[in-house]
Write a protein that binds this DNA or RNA. Structure first.
Lengths: 345, 345
DNA sequence: CGCCAACATGTGAGCGCTAACATTCAGCAG
DNA sequence: CTGCTGAATGTTAGCGCTCACATGTTGGCG
């Protein structure tokens, strides 16, 4: 279907090299190099000739050769896990994007588990690609600890499971996000708020849980029941079945939207009204959240900002800054129809 | 946080080269190369010595140098669009995965629009990375046409918007998927089925629409109304508002789950019962589909299979096979609670 | 009319590796 | 003990580029 044409890099023979271009333009290979690198020290006329030769031959610079001598790959690596989940995939996309805009290619490698083994492999693979820095997007507590022990020869920037003031890291303030969610519910008049957690091995799940607790503490009230989830809709569904039984619960803060979805399903199934009987707040603001029934109130994280900041930080680290740090990004609440004041009793 | 240790590739000096390893092991660099490449022609004892030296120095082969001489990058490229959508992102992940398993790195570049310009850029970027082949996952009709005119010096494999018998392509049979959805509805006793299309510039949207039409034709009945959507929940919502008004519609086939979600929301809003009054079938089987209210009947595509096949095909192309082709993958219907027989009237 | 900036271009070496060929070394037949 | 084989190892020449430096070429001015 796609045939090699007569054009650039024609069917046979090897690809043209700088020397070929030089010969065609009647200059030295160094002049070609200068043109390619935008040097000022080339007469416009010469430049034109070289450019013409390049176009005619369909010349393309060999980056391997270039990398070999410059030792700069213009590539940053990224280690990521759970790319099927909303947050991680958004982060991956945004880092990739921001990287490209800054003139870097981004190599993404997904890890399936968090053994040292597996992380080591990912790291090796990236180092083999000569990445100049590595963005680490894993949120397992253990994994994060092991990453530090990996002792990579390039800077590593952490973008998940980050806490305030941490160096070489950017992140979204999970605790603040959870607080704003819970406070919203408390402000509406709920006496306390139940919580469906994420898997607590995830730093973020812990942070959201802490935010939920603190919001209650601040008002000197006891938090509602805590149910364990694992991010999956199914676990939210299970939690929902239990919450539906508990007449004391009027509001739930669910640690992500997927679980909120399962939970809402369970409440529907049990005939409980949302938000009439029970208010629900999620976390993530997935695109579908607006179209759940009822439309889900949830915490919105600006992943695109995260990606940009991560790349900024990476560049600073590459620039020799030893311990650059940055402020956490504060998420905002998107209030929709799944929350209201509790019914009078 | 992550400090350069005293270990491999210590703080100063350049990374050790093959020559360093050779010196440390008391052999020539070529012997080191042989060990690294698993040659038989090395005495076990020598091999051990070399391996020890490698470990001690923390040596890591320089792939740029290797690529420079071998001209084999072990990397395949992928051009993808709309990575926020379920299908495309699943495809990207599965190709990446399958590629890794076959010993290839996969470079993903996302295009934002379908101008020749933009595709050209993506292609250039990949060629700069010396990819050996390119997997193209764009579904815009025009884009697909332009891709063919790009005339790349490496094989290109298409994985979206593919039709039966197409060479250098693998795909999921969209038309068959649509048919099975519509036939399910017709089998339940619905007289005809309405359809919310995807954006018809997408080949897949057209194919699903065709499947919907053909399923009706086969039974010699006229299809229900056709409404235009754009994959977004919002467009599904708009379509839903209109369908809610039309007493003649008892079943809808929606071209993807996200739109189905919006549509269901609209039906809820208008007080129409699902599936009592209106049955709904989606397409994609997103993880949330099971937890919509009601749980959504939808068409399931095996993206992981697609990724594997794409990589297989790529390898065959790399192997010199000129026009490898493959069968389309047939999707299956996941029947849940959003469909039932129409009410008696 | 010559000399020296300043600009424009060319030359040579070498990045770290593999491929092709050359050399060494053991072991054994003659 | 020589010669020869084949296994094990070494040597050399680039791959295509950039860097550091050498050389050429203009033009302005004494």
């Amino acid at each position: 279907m796609v045939t090699a044409g007569t054009g650039p890099s024609g069917a046979h023979g090897r690809a043209p090299s700088m020397a070929d271009v030089a010969a065609a333009a009647g200059v030295s290979h160094q002049t070609v190099s200068r043109v390619l690198n935008g040097s000022e020290l080339v007469r416009p006329q010469t430049r034109t000739r070289v450019l013409a030769a390049i176009a005619e031959l369909g010349y393309r610079r060999n980056n391997a050769a270039r990398l070999l001598v410059t030792n700069r790959s213009h590539r940053i690596g990224m280690i990521s896990a759970h790319l099927v989940l909303h947050g991680p995939s958004m982060i991956a996309v945004s880092v990739q994007d921001a990287g490209h805009k800054a003139g870097y290619d981004v190599s993404l490698v997904a890890v399936e588990d968090f053994s040292v083994q597996s992380l080591r492999n990912a790291l090796d693979r990236l180092l083999d690609e000569a990445v100049e820095a590595i963005v680490v997007a894993v949120a397992h507590r253990e994994a994060l600890e092991q990453v530090e022990s990996l002792d990579a020869p390039v800077p590593m920037i952490v973008v998940q499971g980050v806490s305030e003031g941490q160096r070489m890291a950017v992140g979204i303030d999970q605790e603040a996000g959870a607080r704003v969610a819970v406070e919203h519910l408390l402000d509406l008049g709920h006496r306390h708020v139940a919580h469906v957690t994420g898997p607590l091995e995830w730093v973020e799940a812990g942070q959201r849980r802490t935010g939920w607790q603190r919001a209650h503490e601040d008002r000197h009230v006891l938090p509602g029941p805590e149910l364990a989830g694992d991010w999956s809709p199914e676990s939210g569904y299970q939690a929902g079945l239990r919450i539906a039984e508990d007449p004391d619960v009027t509001a739930v803060f669910v640690a992500n939207d997927a679980m909120a979805m399962g939970l809402i399903y369970a409440l529907h199934e049990k005939g409980r009204d949302i938000p009439g009987e029970i208010s629900v707040v999620g976390f993530d603001n997935v695109p579908e959240a607006r179209y759940l029934w009822p439309a889900l109130t949830t915490v919105d994280q600006e992943f695109s900002v995260l990606g940009r900041r991560a790349v900024e930080l990476t560049l600073r680290a590459l620039d020799g800054e030893t311990d650059p740090s940055t402020q956490l990004i504060r998420p905002a609440l998107a209030v929709r129809d799944s929350t209201s004041a509790p019914a009078e009793r």
